[in-house]
Design a protein around this nucleic acid. Sequence first.
DNA 1: AATGAATGAGATTTCATTCAT
DNA 2: AATGAATGAAATCTCATTCAT
Lengths: 190, 190, 190, 190
Amino acid sequence: MARPVGKKGIIERSALELFVEKGVDGTSIRDIAERAGVTEGALYRHHKSKDDLVRALFFEHYHQFAQMIKTVRTTHDGPEELLPALVEEFFRFYDEDHYVFEFIMLVQHALLDEVRQDAANPVELVSRIIREAVRKRQLPKQDANLTTQLLIGLVIQPAIGARYGRVKRPLSRHVDFVAQACLEIVRLGK
Amino acid sequence: MARPVGKKGIIERSALELFVEKGVDGTSIRDIAERAGVTEGALYRHHKSKDDLVRALFFEHYHQFAQMIKTVRTTHDGPEELLPALVEEFFRFYDEDHYVFEFIMLVQHALLDEVRQDAANPVELVSRIIREAVRKRQLPKQDANLTTQLLIGLVIQPAIGARYGRVKRPLSRHVDFVAQACLEIVRLGK
Amino acid sequence: MARPVGKKGIIERSALELFVEKGVDGTSIRDIAERAGVTEGALYRHHKSKDDLVRALFFEHYHQFAQMIKTVRTTHDGPEELLPALVEEFFRFYDEDHYVFEFIMLVQHALLDEVRQDAANPVELVSRIIREAVRKRQLPKQDANLTTQLLIGLVIQPAIGARYGRVKRPLSRHVDFVAQACLEIVRLGK
Amino acid sequence: MARPVGKKGIIERSALELFVEKGVDGTSIRDIAERAGVTEGALYRHHKSKDDLVRALFFEHYHQFAQMIKTVRTTHDGPEELLPALVEEFFRFYDEDHYVFEFIMLVQHALLDEVRQDAANPVELVSRIIREAVRKRQLPKQDANLTTQLLIGLVIQPAIGARYGRVKRPLSRHVDFVAQACLEIVRLGK
DNA sequence: AATGAATGAGATTTCATTCAT
DNA sequence: AATGAATGAAATCTCATTCAT
C-alpha cells in the first residue's frame, strides 16, 4: 500500500512486484536484489529463505485482507447488503494496489493448506453468507459451494482481465454491474 | 485424452500432469523423465527443449479445443443457444480430462500473444457473440469486455473449485445452473 | 584400496583424500571436482549432497573394516591371541591405505549415533573381548570401558603420529611392540 | 576456567564451547554472537578476525598448560615420578574444564608449526623425558618416538571416551590406573 | 531411439567482515 | 563499545541441455 520505507520494505516491495510480473519461480533472488538496489545476501538478513519471503509477504497482506472482510461483515447484513459491499471492497483493494491483490491470487493455492481453515478465508466467508441467507429464507435453496465459486469468479476474473488489458481500470467503476450480477446469481435457485 | 501410447505419448502425458500439479517452472526434466520411466536424454528425442514440449502440448490440445468451439458456432445461433452450448462443451471438455483443461488455463497467458487474434480464443469468441447480439438487439447495450470476463469467470472458477474439492465433479452436472447464470448476466444491461 | 575406476570412483577417491588432507569442512565441492577433473555438477549425479558423499564413503569403508574385524574374531580366541591379531590387522589396514584409515577416524564422531549400536563397532568389539576374558578369568577384574579406551589409544595414536611425521611408516613394523603394550595393560588389573 | 566476566570473556567462552561442540569450521560468527548474546559486529571489537579469536583462545590456554608442565618438571624427577605426575596434572586439567582441554586437542595440529619446538609441547616434553631416562639407563632402549605416541594415546583417549559417555568423569579417578599403564609401557624395552 | 554421465550456467544460501549509526 | 544491516566472495546445489556409447 504505502510506499515502502527502509531497505527491508524496499526489498519486500521489489519482490512483490517481481513475483506478480514474472511469477515466483520466474523471479530470482538476484532479480529482487537488483531491483531493490542491494546485494543478494542482504535479503537473508530479513528472511530466512526465498520461500520464507513469499510466505511473509502473503500472510502480511492476507491479514489486511481478512481485516477488511471482517469489517464488512460487522457493518452489513443480509446478502443484498453484504455482497455489493464485498464487491466494492474487493475492487477497492485491487485499485489501491493491484500488485498486492494479484500476488495474493497468485500464491494462495500454494499456501492453501495453511489458509483453508481460516475463517477469514474469503471462500469460506462467502460460502457462510450464502448458507445463512438460505437458512433464513432470504435466498432460495441452492448448492452453496457452487454459487460461492461463481461469485468468486465474478470478482477475480475482472482483475485478471484488467491485467491483460481487457478490462478498464479502476475496477471500482464496475462495482455496480458486478454486484448486480452477483445478486442475480444467488437469487437463481436451482 | 485417450491414455498415451508409445514413449512419446507417455512422456507427454507425464509432463502434462506434472505441469498441472507443480507448475511448469516447478517441474524439472528429471521429474518428467522419472514419472515417464525414461531417462532425461530420451525427452530430447521428441522435443527440442522443455519450452518446445510446453508449446507442443498446448497447441495440440488447443486445436482440439478450437475445433470443438467451431462446431458449436455452426450448430447454434444467438446468445440464448450459444452460451448454454458453450458451457456444456467447456464442462464436457473439463470432465473428459481435467488435466488438459487445467493445463490450458495454466499456460494460456504465457502463450497469449500467439493466440490472441485467433477466433478459437474463447475470450475473443465470447466477446464477439456478445457484441453481435447487442448489435442485433438480442441483448441490451453493455460493456462487452467486462461481460466477457464475467462469463469466463463463471466457467473457469468451477473448474478451480473442483480442483480443490470445493465443487463436485463431474462439472457437467452444473451445466444448467451455470448456463442460466450466464444468461442472467448478459441480459443485465448496464 | 584399489585405485578407483570410472569417474564415480575418481570423484570418491578425490574426496576421500581431500577430506583427510584438509578436513571435511575445509574441502569444497569445487576442490573435489577440480582434483577429480570434472565439473561441480558431476558430483550430484552420484551423491545427493556433500553430506551424502561423506556418509557413503564412511559406510563403504566402515563395512570393509567391520568385515576384517569379524574375520579376526572367528580365527582367534582369547585376549592373548585376539589383541595382537587385531593390532596387526589395524596396522595392516592403515598401511594398505592410510587415507581410508584416517578418514574413518576423522568422521566417525560425526556419525557416531548411526554406528554406536553396531556390533562391528571396534570400541564395542574390544570392550566385549575384555569383558568376556574377565568373565572367563583369563584377565583380572578391571574397568572394561577404561581399558578399552586405552587400547584404542594405543592403536590410533601411532597413526596420528605417522601423519605428523613422528612415527615411521609402515606401522606394521610396530605391531609387536604395540601388541605387547596392549597385553601389559589388560593384565594390569585394578 | 573461571566463568567469564565482561563481554569479551562471554564471547570467548561461547566461542570455545561452540568450537568444541561443532568444530571451528562448523561454528559461524553468528553462532558465537548468538550464544554470547551480542551481535556479530561486537566480536570484532575484541578480535581482528575469527582466526585471531581461535589463536588467542589457543595460546591463552596453552600458556596455562605450559606453566603447569613446567612446574611438574621442576618438582619431579625421573620417569617413575614424572609420568604419574603428568598424568595427574593432565587429568586435573581436563576435569577443571574439559572444554579447554578438548579445544586444545582440537586445534593443536592446525597450530602445530608454531608450537613444535616449544618445550611445553607435551609431545616434545614426553619425548625428552623418555630419551633422558634411556640415556641414564633408568629405562631400557626403545623407540622414543613410538613410546611417546603411545603415552599420549593413553592420556588423550580417556578424554575422548569421556566425551562420548564411555568413560566416567572425573578422569582423576583413573589416574592411578593410567599412570601404571604408562610405566608398564616405558619399561617394555624393545 | 534410449541411456545416463557430464557440462555449464545460474540459482539459492552462507558467512567472515565492514561500516554507518 | 555495540548494533545490525549490508557487502562480496564463495559455497552448495539445481537443472536444461549435450554427447559418447
